[in-house]
Design a protein around this nucleic acid. Structure first.
Ligand SMILES: Nc1ncnc2c1ncn2[C@@H]1O[C@H](COP(=O)(O)OP(=O)(O)O)[C@@H](O)[C@H]1O
Length: 428
DNA sequence: CCTCCACAGGAAGAATCGGGCG
DNA sequence: CGCCCGATTCTTCCTGTGGAGG
């Protein structure tokens, strides 16, 4: 080996992908330079926010759209471009993005906004310890010292309101009345259009001066988004021509969610890579769809309360025993009464006390809502009215999800076989 | 036609949880 | 840290209901 040849080069070379040029550009954290099919929303936002460059406070905006409709990227993009243009022309404008899923209390929202405007570490507001209205007073001071226009985007604002009420929003919509030298404007981002109904009327009228809607993407639009991204994420020619249209169609069929489309493309690439193939094909996308389906089922099961899991386990057990009898999965159904009996058994085995049948039906409805099972009401005349219940997803996904649960995993373990040595010890 | 099965799902209140405050 | 109160969860009791069988 020559002295300038580092043996680790070989290691890195062998790790280097033949498929991905830059995989990170497929993650949700990446903000692309172009946002296809969001020109209309961008223009509207520019029209509303433009006055900030002239030193006026823009109107408050509500942004609506389903998940993956590009709300977050678009708003982040707009804030970045606004700040860029402001510093170019010497205007004092700041854009602050707050993700309310992480920053989910009144205190932390005010704190986050304030700390974004503070450069000195010592002056920063501590993550806890002060009364909320003191943080509010401090924020006013800090804003006055800044003396410009501050645009605050509150992402997942519906979550914040559900968890902590609308008091922060009320405070923030009225903060301009206490400000002389600077102004604050809000951009609220929500998934749920009905979210405004939760708000106090006073908050509603001041928050929703302008509305911007983000409709879900259709298959063609998703294709354009994916094509743009594939150019920087993959090496040229590794994607077979049908891959992108297939990913786009699959995600458009559900909710037109761009995040799902990108996840699908990335996962398909990963699968191809893991199989040591040099091209991504439609078959890889098919596997990726299954993979993501399984992930969502397992994730959904993880967040279920104990009795929710118990109900699901009861349904799993019933389904499995019917399958052992040779019935086809798609034909296996049960009823509320039957499933409740099985649920009682499951609770007995787990040593937990069961809930009443009334409550049980609520769990069934909830599992139906989140798509883990299908339930429909059927009248069977003489034999009463009941819900017909069946598993919604592949039984092996449900099994995986329950197996990985600390409470339910043990139910899958085979009773350990006593070894002859153990027999020997237990006999003496 | 009526009946009555086997529940659905609303209402109200009890029990329990959790998070905010001193 | 404990305590308290409001929110959530769960129970109890209830009325309503589509249709096979009489
Ligand atoms: N028009 C678009 N162009 C490029 N990428 C997009 C576009 N719309 C959405 N995306 C991508 O889709 C993903 C989800 O978008 P996001 O803005 O987080 O959706 P939302 O906030 O509406 O749930 C992000 O990774 C984003 O980069």
């Amino acid at each position: 080996m020559t002295p300038d040849e580092n043996p680790f080069d070989k290691f890195l070379q062998s790790k280097k992908s033949k498929i991905f040029k830059n995989k990170d550009t497929l993650l949700h954290t990446y903000t692309p330079e172009r946002l296809p099919h969001r020109d209309e929303q961008i223009n509207t936002l520019v029209d509303i926010l433009g006055v900030a460059l002239e030193g006026h406070a823009p109107k408050n905006i509500m942004v609506y759209g389903m998940t993956g409709s590009g709300k977050t990227v678009t708003v982040k993009y707009i804030l970045k471009k606004l700040e860029e243009k402001a510093s170019e022309i010497g205007a004092l404008v700041r854009g602050i993005y707050v993700n309310c899923e992480v920053v989910d209390t009144s205190y932390r929202v005010l704190q986050t906004i304030a700390n974004n405007l503070i450069s000195e570490w010592e002056e920063r507001i501590p993550p806890t310890g002060l009364p909320t209205d003191e943080v509010y007073t401090k924020l006013i001071e800090i804003l006055e010292k800044y003396g410009g226009i501050v645009v605050v985007a509150l992402d997942e604002i519906d979550r914040l309101v559900k968890k902590s009420g609308d008091s922060v929003i009320y405070m923030l919509t009225r903060i301009n009345e206490s400000l002389k030298h600077s102004k604050l404007s809000l951009i609220g981002i929500a998934n749920d259009i009905n979210f405004i109904d939760l708000l106090d009327v006073r908050v509603r009228s001041s928050l929703v001066h302008e509305k911007v809607l983000f409709p879900p993407y259709n298959a063609r639009q998703l294709e354009d988004i994916l094509r743009d991204r594939a150019k920087i994420a993959f090496y040229e020619g590794v994607l077979e021509p049908s891959v992108i249209p297939f990913c786009a169609a699959a995600s458009a069929r559900e909710y037109g969610d761009a995040r799902v489309a990108l996840d699908l493309l990335r996962t398909a690439g990963e699968i191809a890579e893991r199989n040591g193939e040099s091209k991504v094909r439609e078959g890889h996308v098919r596997l990726a769809i299954k993979r993501l389906e399984m992930d969502t089922v397992i994730e959904a099961i993880k967040t279920l309360p104990t009795h929710g899991k118990a109900v699901l386990y009861a349904l799993y057990k019933k389904t499995l025993s019917e399958m052992r009898k040779g019935k086809r999965f798609s034909e296996i159904e049960t009823t509320t009464g039957e499933l409740y009996q099985e649920y009682l058994n499951v609770c007995y085995f787990l040593g937990i006390s069961p809930v009443t049948q009334r409550r049980f039906t609520d769990f069934v409805s909830y599992l139906d809502e989140i798509g883990l099972l299908n339930a429909r009401i059927a009248s069977r005349g003489r034999y009463g009215r009941t819900k017909i219940i069946k598993l919604a997803s592949d039984i092996s996904y449900v099994e995986e999800g329950l197996k990985s649960d600390p409470e339910f995993g043990s139910l899958f373990m085979r009773r350990p076989v006593q070894t002859s040595l153990e027999k020997y010890f237990s006999s003496i």
